[in-house]
Nucleic acid binder design. Structure first.
Lengths: 154, 154
DNA sequence: GTGTCTGCAAACTTTTTGCAGAGCT
DNA sequence: AGCTCTGCAAAAAGTTTGCAGACAC
């Protein structure tokens, strides 16, 4: 390891169990339909944010309507069960939210082949604090994604 | 100033002169049409990224076609004269590129009223270097935007 | 004059909405 | 039963493309 500097790094996130997810759904007084269950099961196996179409395609042979995927993802996002990401190509991507407060992470995306690497590092929080304070903003968050050329595409 | 930590801060960027822009256009063997000139003049007066529609509206009474604005912005982006930003709402925003290498900056956006503040601070470059090295990626860049609630909206 | 640019129309993509029937609890 | 969810159709919003005429050089 040639890294002498250690950046702010969250502990590895753990996926929610499907049970947790179902529990949360019920708590939100949402119904646990067959489609949503299948959707959650699938998302639970994925490591990277997926587009609506990718999720739709994974629901074998169009068993679920595209519109339903859109609606489901919006609902899950509203409940905080999934997080929406923008990779700059005007297509929304969704990823199951990890457990607890340790879900915050970013991505490194290859601009040639779209390979995605999950990045745990982030900049130290005092940068955000300073920006918040200096501008009088509250509840400041950030979106941060990295882009580059992966080893295979170089 | 209660800020004891000083973050990586680029010198204030300076706008290109219109002359420079026209020069670059010519260098790219692009034609300097009336529409493009008006577009560049307008962008040169703006401080924040604007959507295509906002730019279109600013071209008095639809003198320029919406499609032409799209095409012009793509062309200017390709030439590096404007930069495209995503504020997470699936609408592209464009801003005239500043001079030299000091154009890199980010934004702080109010999630209530969409007010935009230009942010010069950024995290220290060693974070990006580490991420690049650890994953074998080259030419790594990043997109970073901050979101919060502005003083007026609190 | 020649090659590029522009406007108009149309297509395309992503996402949202309305409504009646089906499904969950 | 009661309320939610789903599929289908349609619409909305953002963006891209094709082509003939207009314009810059």
């Amino acid at each position: 390891m040639s890294d002498t500097h250690h950046h702010h790094k969250c502990p590895p996130r753990s996926k929610s169990t499907l049970f947790d997810l179902e529990e949360k759904l019920r708590m939100g007084s949402k119904r646990l339909t067959g489609g949503r269950l299948k959707l959650l099961r699938f998302l639970n196996t994925q490591d990277h944010p997926l587009t609506i179409k990718e999720i739709f395609s994974a629901m074998d042979s169009g068993e679920m309507d595209l519109v339903t995927v859109y609606r489901s993802m919006s609902m899950l996002e509203g409940m905080g069960l999934v997080k929406r990401y923008d990779f700059g190509d005007a297509v929304a991507r969704f990823e199951l939210t990890g457990e607890g407060q340790h879900d915050h992470h970013h991505h490194l995306i290859c601009i040639r082949c779209d390979t995605v690497v999950e990045i745990e590092e982030c900049f130290p929080p005092d940068l955000e604090n300073a920006i918040s304070r200096q501008n009088g903003f509250t509840a400041v968050t950030h979106k941060l994604e990295f882009f580059g050329v992966c080893p295979k595409c170089q």
